[in-house]
């Protein structure tokens, strides 16, 4: 029991994050709960606009306080993060929780040498001298696979390739050996070969530091490569949660199944790809009662849908926010 408690890094319960749009608040994250454990890579997957980034930024408290509202609970090792002020958050960000972003060029300050951007993270969380910080930064650069750490330390971001920049971002995120790393689409902007290298690097770092990673992506292939657990997100809700095998081998929610179905397969040339009708609705037009995915599977009769779907446990640690999952079929099946 204590062991289990020791393993829990992050506990999110009934998280609601709302944005102000034209004076009204709309939930972009709508009642999400998840638990991140040590040594675990937790993938959040879903189309763009589903609220993945909002979930990530809520955890690290990087939302604009004037135009957003966070409700619910986010506990880091028992400490409540919701409601912390900026100073309190600054102690946790960078030290206990590191963050990696999607676009590695815009995420670095163009006017600052990359070395200084790495040591800056150490400056606020360690008592190291300048020389020690530099030594650590060089070690980090080496650790993330930068061929010429000394030279790179003095470079500016624009002088590096996309893959190298992402390695810099990673070295910043892990500079203080945080227990949790939150990576928001860290490979989306990269070429496949670089993506593969970054995935390997993140896996290695995770093992080495026994950290937990929340890995956000819209690419199911990447999920299959990296995740231990998966949360499938649709319209602000986690519609299915399970182990990576549950999700890929026994998907339950119509959304998960639709997503898996639309991957181009090796099959015949010119096969038609499966299309999910419609799109993720903008916040202000999102249905707030009943199933949010129902409009995108219009061939399922209204009577098959649940009034207000609740989580059903379908296996060990496998949950689905849906009832008609047992009778769901694709349009072309019948």
């Amino acid at each position: 029991m204590d062991k289990e408690k020791d393993n829990v890094l992050l506990e999110i319960e009934h998280l609601h994050t709302a944005f102000r749009i034209n004076g009204k608040f709309y939930n972009a994250v709508d009642d999400c709960s998840l638990t991140l454990r040590k040594n675990e890579i937790y993938a959040i997957v879903g189309e763009s606009g589903c609220g993945k980034s909002t979930l990530a930024t809520s955890i690290v408290g990087l939302l604009d306080p004037l135009n957003s509202k966070v409700k619910g609970s986010i506990k880091y090792r028992g400490q409540e993060l919701v409601g912390l002020n900026a100073d309190e958050y600054d102690k946790i960000r960078g030290e206990d929780i590191g963050m990696i972003f999607q676009d590695p060029l815009s995420a670095l300050n163009p006017l600052m040498r990359v070395g200084d951007q790495i040591t800056e993270a150490l400056y606020y969380h360690t008592k190291d001298s300048e020389a020690e910080r530099k030594k650590k930064a060089l070690e980090l650069l080496k650790r993330v696979g930068i061929p010429d750490p000394e030279g790179t330390f003095r470079r500016y971001p624009h002088e590096l390739s996309g893959g190298m920049r992402q390695r810099i971002i990673i070295s910043i995120a892990v500079a203080c050996s945080p227990e949790i790393i939150i990576a928001d689409e860290p490979t989306t902007a990269l070429d496949v070969t670089i993506q593969a290298q970054i995935i390997d690097l993140l896996k290695d770092i995770q093992k080495e530091k026994e950290s937990g990673i929340i890995f956000i992506t819209h690419d199911l292939g990447v999920v299959a490569e990296i995740a231990d657990r998966v949360g499938v997100m649709y319209a602000g809700q986690l519609v299915e949660i399970g182990s990576v095998f549950d999700i890929f081998e026994d998907p339950k929610h119509p959304y998960t199944r639709s997503l898996l179905n639309s991957i181009p397969q090796a099959g015949e040339l010119g096969d038609r790809l499966h299309v999910i009708q419609g799109n993720v609705p903008p916040l202000s037009e999102m249905k707030r009662s009943g199933c949010r995915f129902a409009p995108r599977i219009p061939w399922i009769p209204a009577s098959a849908h649940e009034e207000n779907p609740s989580y059903h446990q379908v296996g060990d640690g496998h949950y689905v926010l849906c009832t008609c999952y047992q009778t769901f079929h694709f349009q072309e099946e019948k």
Partner: peptide, 20 residues
């Protein structure tokens, strides 16, 4: 985005304004 990165590093707001 780089301002967000600085915040994610735990750099105090005042320093972010001045330095970044």
């Amino acid at each position: 985005d780089y301002v967000r990165t600085a915040r994610a590093k735990g750099v105090p707001e005042k320093v972010i304004f001045r330095k970044h």
